[in-house]
Design a protein around this nucleic acid. Structure first.
Lengths: 335, 335
DNA sequence: GAGAAAAAATGAAGGCATTTATGGACAAAG
DNA sequence: CTTTGTCCATAAATGCCTTCATTTTTTCTC
């Protein structure tokens, strides 16, 4: 069933069918109805390839993320996918893993597939070395690129980020001001957002003239969901004699592992150790006491990201970077 | 840059370029090299739409799931996406939510987009009423449909499921045989796999001549990640005076909520209450004691699903339904 | 080295929808 | 009765690749 069949059965020209299909003007109501009737009767849908060939777009957005099974990224993907669909776009998902190579190849693939835009979910797409980020700027010469929780200054790249620095800064200050001065920073990523968080922590510590660095900054490199490995990391630290009465974790999973560590080591939370998480995910309810965590308003970020993308695709002028502030949600693991 | 440009610059016909591109035979090494050189020099990539028009396929698989932010589904999507990509296919993701209407529309969309196959992730795509499942059989007349953890008998539909019945049956028997005879079944889904689990529990209870039904079967209807609501559900039950010394939960989140309930109500786990989870997700490490849970080998299921799909797309004869058995992973919440 | 067979390369058709230019038919307005 | 404008048909160009039927070239054999 092609547009020719329809035009024949409706007794009109293919141009008219096309105009009905694409809602353009110069079609009388009567003709329009007649054509639509035939279209419905034969359940005709235009061939997506031919249409793509004609329009050079398929109303599809590419979504890239390192690992869609990560709690936080999965949530972001969900929001984004929903909002795109609500606006008539589909999404092609690419889970790239953490290797630059794979990211570049996924990027090319998406461009080859003629997506109308690309969304990079999570800050791990930005590397330390500027030269490693060239692949993003390159892609942006072809289609708009949106960054969620990352930042890169180049034409046609837009970013929506949460103000992780300030959130961390304030949360750290709050913890210090409950009388704790040996606070461990527990993190697993040195990405853009990871760096901003760390900087917030350090700024607060330095402002109160407290020690940072060395053993008080613990980088965990392991599976993002292997909680036992995370607690083991902390236990090892304790065996080495490192003391701390507060933990600021870069995400809820690390925080939860810290709570677990505390319990298994006989510390009370928050009396002996205060613990702060990040993301305000479902994990906050998974431990006892419940996790104080920073909510970075993922929903809002995603909403704004899509709005911006749609604006850009619509040819409008849009802000290159938008920052939203987070919120500390106080629960049981901090005083 | 089109195939015409390349053919011209390489001094061959477009047919030859096409054959080089698609690795078909009848091209001399010399010509091949010459063409590839030009292709590389100009960084030519064939237009995906035109190619789709010619081949009537775009090597793309549609993935549908109700909610990609669900821990279990997210994991499945991750596995599937990875394995598809490794085999040269992309995936279009559709998060449909739980409404039939939305599922039907996503299904149509995928077919319009000319995907080569559709994967339904999770059993919530199958409804009680057969007439509600017509949309799947309809889709299957166009492209192969794969069901993960669901079952529907119609042409061109293939399913890969875990043997939830047996897993539950055996786990329930084990729990009964530690001396517990008032076991609560806590569930949140009446989908295919939900029903199978429930049946396993009932079969075991009945085999030991124990009471089931009524207050011992608790259906939770609420957000799949709202743990406080789940514990509240159980607390309400207790206020009503319902007694139970075991909980068999249909997923880890419900189980974790049960552990939380026990702790908050002063019961010891597993001394006073035994608790069993399902999925063996990262949540098993999130509570104290750690959760005994059933591992249904999601990775294996997904691997097999993709293998089957690729086989079908390759025109091979493939099994319509494959069943894998699960495994009870004993941890601290059961005796 | 001629002729046959095999290999390599070509040309043209086909796939389907969009868009544009041109012009015809018809209605209402001047 | 002419002009103007609306609606629609027709035809052609565009987008780009695949593939089949053919032709050309190469290779091989006697």
């Amino acid at each position: 069933m092609t547009i020719y069949d329809i035009s024949e059965k409706a007794g009109v020209s293919i141009a008219t069918v096309s105009r009905v299909l694409n809602g353009s003007s110069n079609v009388s109501e009567k003709t329009k109805k007649k054509v639509l009737d035939v279209i419905n009767r034969y359940e005709y849908t235009p061939n997506a390839f031919a249409r793509g060939l004609g329009l050079n777009t398929m109303k599809t957005i590419g979504i890239m993320c390192a690992d869609s099974s990560d709690l936080y990224l999965a949530k972001a993907i969900y929001y984004i996918e929903q909002k795109l669909r609500a606006n008539g776009y589909d999404s092609i998902l690419c889970c790239t893993g953490y290797e630059l190579e794979a990211k570049m190849s996924s990027m090319n693939l998406l461009i080859t597939k003629k997506v109308d835009g690309i969304i990079l979910v999570g800050s791990n797409f930005i590397y330390e070395k500027d030269s490693d980020n060239k692949y993003i700027a390159d892609a942006a010469t072809q289609v708009p690129v949106m960054l969620l929780n990352a930042d890169l200054d180049a034409p046609n790249i837009y970013s929506v980020v949460s103000d992780d620095f300030t959130s961390m800064y304030e949360a750290t200050l709050q913890m210090i001001d409950t009388g704790i001065n040996d606070i461990l920073y527990f993190y697993n990523s040195t990405s853009y957002s990871g760096k901003r968080k760390l900087a917030g922590y350090r700024a607060a510590m330095e402002e109160r003239k407290l020690l940072t660095g060395g053993n008080l900054m613990q980088f965990y490199h392991g599976s993002h969901e292997d909680i036992p490995a995370m607690t083991e990391h902390l236990k090892k630290l304790r065996r080495k004699g490192v003391q701390f009465h507060g933990v600021i974790a870069a995400d809820d999973t690390l925080a939860l592992a810290s709570v677990k560590y505390a319990r298994e080591t006989g510390y009370r939370v928050p009396e002996d150790i205060s613990i702060l998480g990040y993301n305000n995910s479902m994990l906050v309810n998974c431990c006892n006491p419940e996790l104080t965590s920073i909510d970075n308003k993922l929903d809002t970020l995603c909403q704004h990201l899509i709005t911006t993308l749609l604006g850009v695709l619509d040819g409008k002028e849009m802000p290159k970077k938008t920052v939203f502030s987070g919120e500390i949600v106080k629960r049981g693991t901090t005083r």
